[in-house]
Design a protein around this nucleic acid. Structure first.
Lengths: 210, 210
DNA sequence: CGTTGTGAAATGATTCACAGCT
DNA sequence: AGCTGTGAATCATTTCACAACG
């Protein structure tokens, strides 16, 4: 889904005004029918014989994704990954801004990284309410993850991107997406191992992870 | 799939010797039948009435994933994300080691971060061959991504974890997995926006991204 | 004529139910 | 009794095919 946004953005930058479902399908690895079914849900703005007007489609998708309504995010945990996220330029290009960072280490509190001030973790509810923050990036050590997540939910954060390698027990009011770096690497290694095994002895069916 | 490894590891640490399909299912959000179907593919090592012996199952999965055979990885691009990856402790716990980093900036070459030496990008083929590196972490700016990826493929790297926000044109000999931070955030924001819209006016079906 | 939107067929995945073993 | 492994039924998703439209 997010891929549509990306692809449409680069097409618009290249000066294209319309796009056909088949083009999008090739770029995203889908069939043209699949693309049409997806896009039909977002309002019927495809013109038969012509295609989809890129600016209109982008506006529609951005409005749905909320990337035009100024989402703000908070970072919890200013460690290795946290610092990288604060310095990561790309978020703003997609319409997001990290407006506050939090850490329980008082030596870090008060500092500024990537233009973002680091607050005491205890101030989370106040700052979240004041800034109207709805998204949180969780980058703390595993054993602190659940506690921080609970605090974020209590503070009113609606969506959490969890970088900690620990599954969070779900809350009905908050959506959690996992970004697990080491598991991504395991997954990649597994794919490679399977590809190797398959090319070595093609008759190894039954071992198909998703 | 990687989730099985994670869950079994914590169970083994907690001293459990066997696990039943239903327990695994609850922990991973699957049904027991689903778990049994998955595990049956890895060799029939479940005992009726008892369950699965955790050590045996872990050994089997690790062997398939290759995490017991000492995968080594190379990092290409020592920027914000690259530095965080080098300092990330968690990889070794899963059986991986980043043994070399590469950057085209000569001011960085020769430095050491997280115990890993930074080499000149031109030395990639030599070091990869010498160290027997099969996995690569790509964390360079978007416009350099494709060129670096090609160099990694040419050097013999078999799997690439791509942190650059750009789709790479595929190579038959190398598997690419995408880890796109800004797209993850877009995806999360979209989920939140949809959840909000749905609770506001439940009759908004048809807009269901995967 | 080329392309969208959508119903119908085909494909794949999930769930159920039960035989067999401990 | 409890649990695994697996075929059968159910469900969702993908693909195909075609009517409507510019």
């Amino acid at each position: 889904m997010s891929l549509y946004l990306r692809d449409l953005e680069v097409r618009l930058e290249q000066g294209e005004q319309t796009v056909r479902s088949r083009q999008l399908g090739e770029a995203l690895g889908l069939t043209d029918a699949q693309v049409r079914k997806d896009l039909a849900h977002f309002g019927h703005l495809g013109h038969p014989g012509i295609g989809y007007p890129i600016p209109d489609l982008l506006a529609r998708l951005r409005r749905l994704a909320g990337t035009d309504s100024g989402w703000t995010a908070a970072l919890v945990g200013v460690g290795n990954i946290g610092r990288a996220l604060l310095s990561y330029q790309r978020f703003e290009a997609e319409g997001f801004r990290i407006v506050a960072a939090f850490d329980e280490d008082h030596a870090k509190v008060g500092g500024i990284i990537g233009g973002v001030r680091i607050h005491d973790l205890a101030d989370l509810p106040v700052v979240v309410a004041r800034e109207g923050i709805r998204l949180g990036l969780l980058a703390v050590p595993p054993r602190a993850a659940q506690g921080c997540a609970d605090a974020m939910v209590a503070a009113g954060i609606r969506g959490i991107l969890n970088f900690a390698p620990r599954r969070l027990s779900p809350s009905p009011s908050t959506i959690v997406h996992e970004v697990d770096l080491s598991m991504s690497l395991v997954h990649l290694a597994l794919s490679v191992a399977l590809a190797d095994a398959e090319s070595a002895s093609p008759c190894l069916h039954g071992i198909l992870p998703r």
